[in-house]
Design a binder for these strands. Structure first.
Lengths: 336, 336
DNA sequence: TTGTAAGCGTTATCAC
DNA sequence: GTGATAACGCTTACAA
């Protein structure tokens, strides 16, 4: 109801509207007396500038966009995203930005969404999560010179600003950990091919095996999706092998839980007959039976760096590197 | 780079800028030939209207705000919110709106955030989650006539538009379920006093007990917070009672898991010596051991109704009721 | 130091 | 039907 404008504040303070604007923007050239008068009126009436007008004029909306690739259904049950969103809200807020979240459902709507957010200039910059090996958005965004940061990876690596877990390192870390514990047959249940996260963790897994002279066999690798069901099926198959693995690196905690279920159903003793490790250190890891070991990715730091880089890009400040890597660490529980 | 405006499209199509606007808004009065010409140019150059200018002029930003009360830390690990956010994104998107999420951390920043979102007119309307018994924002929002919907409850009930679980009904449902199963000593581990969700579920619990003639005893009720730790401590205390309960209604799944842990540590057999039920049917319920029974709240419907009501309010369409109740249902697993 | 005025890119109301 | 033209509320030269 107090549909206040600078004009009204100006009239009430008996100054020009430009002066009100100057006071608000902290322009040092305004007389102290006037400034006080204006501030008093602003305070008294609770005036707040209209963000719409500000963004039109200043070409800044004060909003960051976060676009995730998952269907709302998958988003709903994925703890990674709630943690990510929460952390980005936190850091964006500290930098004076709001966060607008969009989910790019189907492939065809993806283009629509980024067009929407980008071309309408509704947001000042974009954080993109989980880019795919072939991501049609990158060239467009690059060509437009629009500020954006990837959480994940894109090739060529130096083409874009990105923040990422050390996924290759994490895959290697989990595998080497098993090797150190004496395992010789180590399987890997991965996600979809073409997703960098999966390809990278798989590469780390393979590397560790080959460096230890254990050899890599595609029989011990199961590609699929990120579901518990996939973990269950893949584990069932692996356990039916003539020479089943004694340890499994699962690409995700949910997948690991599926694997765990398959093993428990067959009476396999965990961790003695079969060791399992997941990724992400999801909150539920400590609640499953037995509590699931997991490679923790530092989501908060990931969010902080991504937000920080994006804000710097938007505000034209210098960003020293193109790519930032956040280390993972292994959380040992009862399944390894 | 193609920093296109209607003006440029107009020049390229050799029409006036007003005509371009009319074509875009689907004004029927434009000559078919001109319309085609304009549309061709728009298509060719990939023009999209500037949302900032549109919102300034039309007084609509096309953005809904979601404000949650939790600290980013608690937000990060709460599956309720990821599900809620995901669903709201979905339904807002279908209605042509984006979603801006803000977390109101400390009490004092709460006021700042709603001022920010509301008075700057950055969003067209607000969805507020978990209002408290004393919520200083309500009077302000009401007074401003700003469109907003509550997910939760506020008194007087008819003062605001709200969508809610049937929390009283749910508390009663869980308790009656235990009574039907023959339990006589049924405890309740609740959350903080003054949170409607907790007060309501507690009221339903109490009601069911009294109607069944079992009597209500505050010894069997533990108020606290929403943490696993609280569940653990409360359960430990309850189990030390001279006459411990045989069934527990926990206000939240996480609290239930804490209770479960306390019971398992003491060698209490579940569900035979002690039955436990949680609330929310969180994704991890099926992964704990034994799988946790839970009263499921229909988050997707909650989100859908809230979004639907809010969009109607914003667009000036009629909203038949002030308050909408979404029923809960009981998901029976191995702890009951 | 302050006021005047020109946009920012739309939408919508006029005349023609 | 179509084209000028006046807002929307703000920022920022430019004038005074």
């Amino acid at each position: 109801m107090p549909e206040l404008t600078q004009n009204q504040i100006a009239r009430l303070s008996r100054v020009s509207q430009a002066t009100v604007s100057r006071v608000l923007r902290g322009d040092p050239r305004v007389n102290e007396e006037l400034r006080q008068r204006v501030l008093a009126v602003i305070e008294k009436h609770g005036y707040v500038p209209d963000a719409r007008a500000q963004s039109l004029r200043s070409l800044r909306s004060g909003i960051l966009g976060l676009v995730v690739h998952r269907s709302p259904r998958r988003l709903a049950s994925d703890p990674f995203f709630s943690a990510l969103i929460a952390a980005i809200i936190e850091f964006a807020g500290k930098a004076g930005y709001h966060l607008c979240v969009d989910a790019a459902r189907a492939i065809q709507s993806r283009r629509a969404i980024y067009e929407e957010l980008l071309r309408t200039r509704r947001v000042d910059g974009l954080i993109l999560v989980e880019p795919q090996t072939q991501d049609e958005r990158m060239p467009r965004l690059l060509q437009e010179g629009f500020p954006f940061v990837l959480i994940g990876r894109y090739e060529p690596t130096d083409a874009v600003y990105s923040v990422d877990n050390d996924n290759v390192g994490a895959g290697r870390m989990a595998t080497e950990y098993f090797i150190r514990k004496g395992h010789r047959r180590i399987a890997h249940i991965s996600g979809p091919r073409g997703i960098f996260v999966c390809e990278d963790r798989h590469a780390g897994y393979r590397c560790a095996l080959e460096e230890a002279g254990l050899g890599y066999s595609s029989d011990l690798v199961a590609w699929g999706d990120f579901s518990e069901e996939h973990g269950y099926r893949a584990m069932s198959r692996l356990l039916s092998l003539p020479n089943p693995p004694t340890a499994v690196v699962a690409v995700d905690d949910l997948v690991a839980i599926g694997a765990l279920r398959a093993a428990k159903e067959r009476g396999v003793c965990i961790p003695h007959q079969l060791a399992i490790i997941g990724f992400n250190d999801s909150p539920f890891c400590q609640y499953v039976e037995p509590p699931l070991s997991s490679v923790a990715v530092d989501i908060r730091t990931l969010a902080q760096m991504a937000t920080d880089v994006l804000v710097k890009l938007i505000e034209g400040r210098e960003v020293p590197q193109r790519r930032y890597i956040v280390p993972c660490h292994l959380v040992e529980r009862q399944t390894t």
